[in-house]
């Protein structure tokens, strides 16, 4: 029964994310989309994938993957966020 409740919550969130895209919020649309998707992912992971019953090691495996993905995004972003700021003589101008 709990699974059905989770499924219902997922469908409600799906409706929310689809509906939110028709409300003009500028940059907040993308934020809402990602926040709702993360919530859905969390529900699937915790309940369907039984993460809440798993030991520390499995939780760590799940978290490490996300942390490493964040490293890929974050450190690359040190480049993309500052590329236009100032130039060495040899570096490309955007």
């Amino acid at each position: 029964m709990r699974y059905v409740a989770v499924w219902a919550a997922l469908l409600v969130l799906l409706a929310a994310t689809a509906g939110s895209s028709y409300i003009p919020m500028g940059g907040w649309n993308a934020f809402a989309n990602m926040a709702i998707s993360s919530l859905k992912a969390l529900l699937v992971a915790l309940f369907f994938m039984q993460l809440r019953h798993e030991g520390a090691l499995v939780r760590l495996a799940a978290v490490v993957a996300l942390v490493w993905l964040a490293l890929l995004f974050g450190l690359s972003w040190t480049d993309y966020s500052t590329r236009g700021a100032s130039h060495a003589p040899w570096s490309a101008r955007p």
């Binding site: 994310t17 689809a18 895209s21 028709y22 003009p24 649309n29 989309n33 992912a41 699937v44």
Partner: peptide
């Protein structure tokens, strides 16, 4: 769940 908003939901209001 992540691909769906990334591709289908960009500024649907426009």
């Amino acid at each position: 769940v992540f691909l769906y908003p990334m591709f289908y939901l960009l500024e649907r209001y426009n």
